[in-house]
Amino acid sequence: MNASHSYWQLFYAVYSKDLTLAFRQRAEIVNPLLFFLIVITLFPLAIGPEPALLARMAPGIIWVAALLSTMLGLDKVFRDDFNDGSLEQLIASAYPLPLTVLAKVLAHWTITGLPMVLMAPVFALLMNLDTQLLTATLLTLLIGTPLLSFIGAIGAALTVGLQKGGILMSLLVLPLYIPVLIFATSAIDTSSMSLAYGGQLAILGAMLAVAAVMAPLAISSALKVSVS
């Protein structure tokens, strides 16, 4: 192991590999986004195109759609590396596994979470969302989607050794998403009443900070169990 090689280089190698792979198989980026769009467009068809009703429901719908689309890509985070043996190579590296895991989770967020945050204003137009609510929705998505990636990756790491772990993973992970959903929608509700919603955002931020520190450790342990 060479001393001049820093942790940053490891982080960059893992992160850029996942992004390169995602760009080679565009479906990985496009599919969750299309799913997100379709779920959102189905709602006006189902409940009727009444602008006031849609605007009232929009934040909740966008958030639930975001939860579900995040789940789509989660199974892939460790699956390919597990199948081709890269995961063993990462474990048998002198570098700390949690750092590698952090890079992989952030890559997942860049591929699925970030495009959703960027596209949310467009989708909000479909739902007749006003600017004030849109700002609140965007802020909660910006803090909330990385949190979804961190929590979800724990479930993905636990089920990667199973042949059909996808459904089990959803059952494990979705209940853990409930606190995120509660605080995010509560922030948006508060903003609809023109009140300060900094408190809810702060709690989401605190959850993200804890997840960013603790989740990589949990994921590393789960991966070691899955590989053995």
């Binding site: 192991m1 090689h5 792979l21 081709d84 063993e88 002198a94 590698t100």
Partner: peptide, 26 residues
């Protein structure tokens, strides 16, 4: 091992470079 840790989507050169990077070799 049996599973070699070579990614089918990446090229041979990229695979070698990635392996060197994550194991801390120049």
């Amino acid at each position: 091992g049996h599973k070699t840790g070579v990614n089918g989507q990446l090229t041979a050169y990229e695979n070698v470079c990635y392996w060197l990077d994550v194991h801390g070799y120049e």
